[in-house]
Amino acid sequence: MKTGRPFFRSRPAVAASSALIALFLSAAVLAPLVAPRDPNAVDLEKINLPPSRDHWFGTDDKGRDVFSRVVYGGRVSLSIGAAATVLALGIGTAVGFAGGYFGGRLDHLLQVVVDITLAFPSLLLAIAITVVLGPGFFTVFLALALAGWASLARLVRGEVISLKQREYVLAARSSGGSSAVIIARHLLPNCLPILLVAASLKVGGFILGEAALSFLDLGVRPPTAAWGFMISAGREYLRSAPWMTVFPGLALAAVVLAFNLLGDAVRDRLDPKLEVR
């Protein structure tokens, strides 16, 4: 990293988005303490109540407290977003390294696989995988990662190819360093910045993907609170109880916005030319 003003003070947006992410993370981890009520407690005497002091975000069509459900929904979104990012990074890094470092036929083959994966609209591919595997927590993150790893593989491959030409790698190789040592000691650490940027920009995308899948009723199973599912449940009551739709959506947008701002800032700092979508 370049020297200069500390990263967090360099831009108010970075500080704000980090704070927001920290807030959502702690709310998700401490959900039982933060949520005033049981997110799945049905109370048919209190359905579709507008926001009030008792129910900050109102209640839904089954009388459940929307605020508590939003807090618990953060668990689903953040954990699936994180898990999908880790898996996609894992696959992407492995494929990118295999192709970029060893080159030749293997690289060609892997490139073809990457091209084919990229040819599918990512949400549609994730939908198809979910449909085949049957919905659920595990399926959702697997589907998102399988539909989203390819751009990371391409990114890593490019980076590895350029790093491979550096003098210190040539020096390590000519002094008898094995491929494993070169990859682990020289290439991987130098790929970390780019991976960091890619990861922070991907998390938001995966969280949106998870929300889209659960909006389409392909996500985690109800009654588990997931933001996308809450938004789709609120559709029917859009006119009479808009808070059912508005608040989970705001939470979702806030988290994704925070990750995108942070990702943008990290990218600008490390490599302004990088485009990850």
Binding site: G204, L208, A211, A212, F215, G228, I231, S232, G234, R235, L238, R239, P242, T245, V246, G249, L252, A253, V256, L257, N260, L261, D264
Partner: peptide, 17 residues
């Protein structure tokens, strides 16, 4: 940045509302 972060389906529902 906000436009990129908002989920499409939510934007749609808010527009309807």
């Amino acid at each position: 940045v906000a436009g990129i972060s908002f989920p499409v389906f939510w934007t749609g529902l808010i527009l309807v509302l």
